[in-house]
């Protein structure tokens, strides 16, 4: 998994339809930013805090990579089990470091689809320091990935 030095921010620009009364009393659709726009960036901030906490637990051997991604995406074994075609208890086992060792590559591919990552992401965390851009390409049905890292154009000049 590729982690950049700066946390993701909500840059605005999203508009949604909300129904509001106009001056004639009619309830009409209005296209405008969400009422809870301020909370969206807080969500990203919270995700950043969650990531650091979970990554610490992963490195300390408290959970497996499957457990890490499940917690990061706020998913329980009950949510994941039908999506990967396994029982809840098996998914629960894969969330622990010892259980994870027993998972086959075929099963890891299924997890990769659910978390929208590659199997390679389950085994490595790459931290990019500095103002770098990256592009990820999944290969061989998400078994591997190719990552292109480049300096941002403004820095290259």
């Amino acid at each position: 998994m590729i982690i950049t030095g700066t946390r993701q921010r909500f840059e605005g620009g999203l508009r949604i339809i909300r129904y509001e009364r106009n001056e004639t009393g009619r309830c009409v659709p209005c296209l405008r930013p969400p009422e809870t726009e301020a909370e969206i960036d807080i969500y990203y901030e919270q995700r950043d805090i969650d990531f650091k906490r979970l990554h610490g637990e992963l490195c300390a051997g408290v959970m497996s990579p499957v457990g890490f991604f499940a917690a990061y995406f706020n998913m329980s074994p009950k949510d994941i089990a039908p999506m990967v075609g396994l029982s809840e208890s098996t998914v629960g086992k894969h969330m622990s470091p010892r259980g994870f060792e027993k998972a086959t590559i075929e099963i890891l591919k299924r997890y990769a689809r659910v978390f929208d990552i590659s199997v390679a992401d389950l085994f490595s965390f790459v931290f990019l320091h500095g103002d770098l851009d990256h592009e990820v390409h999944y290969l061989a049905d998400r078994l591997m990935e190719r990552v292109d890292v480049n300096r941002r154009p403004s820095q290259a000049q």
Binding site: I16, R18, Y19, E20, P29, P34, E35
Partner: peptide, 13 residues
Amino acid sequence: EDQGTGGGAFRLL
């Protein structure tokens, strides 16, 4: 409010 309800939990819609 904002998850596709149009505001006011669909009541305005």
